[in-house]
Design a protein around this nucleic acid. Sequence first.
DNA 1: ATGAAAGCGCTAACAC
DNA 2: GTGTTAGCGCTTTCAT
Lengths: 335, 335
Amino acid sequence: MSDTPTIHDIAKFAGVSLATVSRVLREPEKVTPARRSRVREAIAHFNYVPNAMAQQLRRPGFRTILVIIPEISNLFFAEALKNIENVAHQLGCRVLIGETQRKQERLDHYVELVTSRVADGLILFGSLWPSVLHDSFDAGSPLPFPLVLAEGSVYGPNCPRVKIDNIRSGEMAVRHLLASGRKRIAMISGPLRYTVSTDRLEGYQRALSEAGMEQRADWVVVGNFSMESGYEAMASLLERPEWPDGVFCASDEMAIGAQAAIREKGLRMPDDIALIGFDDMRFAAYASPPLTTIRQPAAQLGEAAVRMMQAIFHGEAIEQHTVILDHELIIRESA
Amino acid sequence: MSDTPTIHDIAKFAGVSLATVSRVLREPEKVTPARRSRVREAIAHFNYVPNAMAQQLRRPGFRTILVIIPEISNLFFAEALKNIENVAHQLGCRVLIGETQRKQERLDHYVELVTSRVADGLILFGSLWPSVLHDSFDAGSPLPFPLVLAEGSVYGPNCPRVKIDNIRSGEMAVRHLLASGRKRIAMISGPLRYTVSTDRLEGYQRALSEAGMEQRADWVVVGNFSMESGYEAMASLLERPEWPDGVFCASDEMAIGAQAAIREKGLRMPDDIALIGFDDMRFAAYASPPLTTIRQPAAQLGEAAVRMMQAIFHGEAIEQHTVILDHELIIRESA
DNA sequence: ATGAAAGCGCTAACAC
DNA sequence: GTGTTAGCGCTTTCAT
């Protein structure tokens, strides 16, 4: 932690010019073996590592892509991230991760990393929109940096994005409940300020009306995607005079909370209540009973996002401006 | 995404000198209102954001701390991270997160961010040791950058660290099992190449021998901290002629996997088998039955790490070179 | 093959 | 107040 050596120190120590040191670093073959090793010794001696800031200034180096997610503890994001890291690494980029905790201020703080060129591109999850990009939202004004939107929960802006079709996913979930003869289907939704939530809700409604079922507004109760809120929501549903016989939860976490509430009441799944979740996160298979759910292709989503970013970096025209990934019904034992 | 404007563009456009633009940015009060607003217009017009690389070069700016974790999808880390972010933000630092997936190569790649001064300090979770720091491992040689070790799973190096006492935690877990009269206590351990694992295992052994119980080597089966491995481990235990009546799992994830195996056999917890986990991750309370576990203070751990880092940044002598956080037994229904 | 020197985008002394 | 100028640590012509 002593004073950081610079290229000057190395040059002086090795008795060569700055340029030579620089060359040893990036085109060693252009330097005589003798001096080359002298320089290398010096480098080792000082434990010298070039200052990346200074390097980048002259020469566009490794690409760094910043990934911003709302919550790191949400397993869905964790899964997507893992793949982003893998693919990016493969493609020779570095990945930095930032968590906003759904705070605009945090988001903006992270976005500075890319406006100020510490990172070269941004993959943005979640429903918040960077303040700096306010003008670019609906206006056709071009984006000031490479951006790809993931998870598709943001409205309008005209930029590359990868998402899943939450409406059709919701439909699929509810149809599955319907298929087993459920008549009183409730929904535990996410916060209605998020598109993902309203989309899944719309899917629920469509499936119901398609089946000619009655829609009861008081049977959709909104949680916040957490287990706790799922538990509360289900508990409140079970306090009503008439119980639902099927419940669609907008996240697996809420479904797991709901399961706890159902078990506490001594009810059985799927006999008394059929329950279906959303995400297919790791824990779903180990729930009691194992959770039937809609699988979001988190990993693919990450991969697709990185590939789009890569395309932008390379100035390639992106064929599909928005790619929609396939969801899938995973049938286990809860419905 | 068009050509990035520089301070020159702004200066020219506003008809002032570079210095004036720079001043408007960081000491606006020293510039006449008239010119100030001219410059601001120019900035707005070009959508100018100073290049952070260039800035840092002259002037040590915001501190960036890099946090490296093995796996982002491990909820324990997620929890610790959340708090790191919070505290760091409060202290005016930026946090970057990197995931190694327990690969040395990945770790080293991230560590470059700090040797090359993109980040100013490193908080390191996990059991891997950066290659660059090879010499500093046991040698007393000083570290080339601010480093604090978290989670305490690395041997020897002489640097600030924050950890929990895994041995005593393990003891506590097993004592609890013993207290309810269990006679045949098995353990599902983590990989034995990690200190966290061997420490918890040692705690298990100590508690057993302290109680004068027989120790059977074939009753410790090793998993890899995942639910899957917990399931497998428990299943294998249940294939033996004699079943354990108590099981200590080195992670909640493994415990949840184990619960699934136990339920499948139609056994009851804690009546037939008492089960205790480790971590107290979010899902523990919603398991079936709710999981008794040892709580690791993930959040405090994050906070402590950041504060130590802050102290290093400020050149303060760190009072406690290694801080050990308290664990806690959380009794729920599985044991 | 090597070194001198210009410059990357910005900040901070120093003059005016 | 404001502009000029000298760097920050590095890369890259361009001579030699």
